Computed example of a mutant assay.
Amino acid sequence: MVDVLGHLGMALLWLAPVWYFVEHRKTAALIVAGGFWFGMLPDVDLPLSNWVEGVHHHGIVHTVLVVTILAVVIGPLVGVAFKRIGERTDWFSARAAKRATVIGFLAVWIPGLSHLFADMLSAPDISTQIEPLWPVVTGPVVVLDVLWYQSWWATWGLFTLGVTVNVLAWYWSSDRRPTDSSTASTR
């Protein structure tokens, strides 16, 4: 299991395609900046284990099912927050505001899934293995175990890679593409 920065870096990597699919650069930046924090969502089981009997780290919260349920509950709230930011600023386009609920869901769900993937890469050596496809498949799916538990190089490497990919994607984002008005003037 990578440390917090590693999970956030993995979330940044998984969110990087936003720059390709969202035409408005500021909207993409808001989605990435607001969403990557949810790369820590499955670790909500750490504080929950102190309050709820039977909840343990890498247990039920580290499943696609629970991450999806949490995204269904939290995602629309994130979408509303994005939409309100767009109403007050130009950081969330009017086109994106029409799909704010779906965008909010994806901004929570994708980083949550990235957390499960990062744990699949590193959890088996010392920590409890995760069962990401429970209840459909019981037991670990594929144990890759390619990263050391709390590996410094993996944690900082993932975070640096995630930031770098998003900075490059920002630089080459769709705002550099010709707009309808600029292509009309060249005809």
Rank of each mutant, 00 (worst) to 15 (best):
T164A: 10
V64R: 06
I103Q: 02
P17A: 01
K83G: 05
F82D: 01
I130S: 08
G162Q: 03
D45H: 05
V137T: 11
V4E: 14
F105C: 06
F36Q: 02
L147D: 06
A118M: 14
A97Y: 08
W91M: 08
V141N: 06
Y20F: 07
M10S: 07
A81Y: 02
A29G: 09
G139F: 07
I60G: 08
D119K: 08
E53V: 14
L65Q: 06
M10V: 11
E87T: 10
D90Q: 13
M120F: 04
G6H: 06
L144C: 07
A16K: 00
V52D: 09
L158H: 05
P111C: 00
W19S: 03
V80D: 11
T186R: 14
L161P: 00
H57D: 10
F105A: 04
A81F: 08
L13Q: 05
F117T: 08
V143L: 08
I69E: 14
T68S: 12
A123G: 13
T68W: 06
Y171W: 15
M40F: 09
V32N: 02
L77W: 14
G104P: 03
A29C: 12
I110P: 05
Y149D: 08
S182P: 13
S127G: 14
V72S: 13
L65V: 11
V146F: 11
W19Y: 02
S49I: 00
M120C: 08
T63V: 11
V136D: 09
W19T: 01
P124Y: 15
A16Q: 04
K83H: 12
Y20Q: 02
R177D: 15
L70G: 01
D90T: 11
V44Q: 00
L70S: 07
A169Q: 00
R187F: 14
G157K: 02
S114G: 10
T160F: 12
F38L: 03
Q150D: 13
A97S: 11
T164W: 01
A96G: 03
S174Y: 07
S127R: 15
D125W: 14
R95Q: 15
V22T: 09
S173F: 00
G139E: 05
I74F: 07
N166G: 03
F105W: 06
W19C: 03
A107R: 01
I110M: 03
T186D: 15
T63Q: 08
W153R: 08
Y171S: 11
K26S: 11
W51N: 11
V102Y: 09
P17C: 02
L147N: 09
T68H: 03
V136K: 09
D175R: 10
V32C: 06
A71G: 05
V72F: 15
D43F: 03
G139S: 06
K98G: 12
W172G: 04
H7E: 00
G75P: 07
S49V: 01
S173R: 00
P178Y: 15
M1Y: 13
A33L: 12
V108N: 02
P132M: 05
H58S: 04
L12D: 04
W109C: 05
P17S: 04
S127I: 14
V4K: 15
R88W: 10
V137K: 12
I69G: 12
W14D: 02
L77E: 12
M1H: 10
S114H: 02
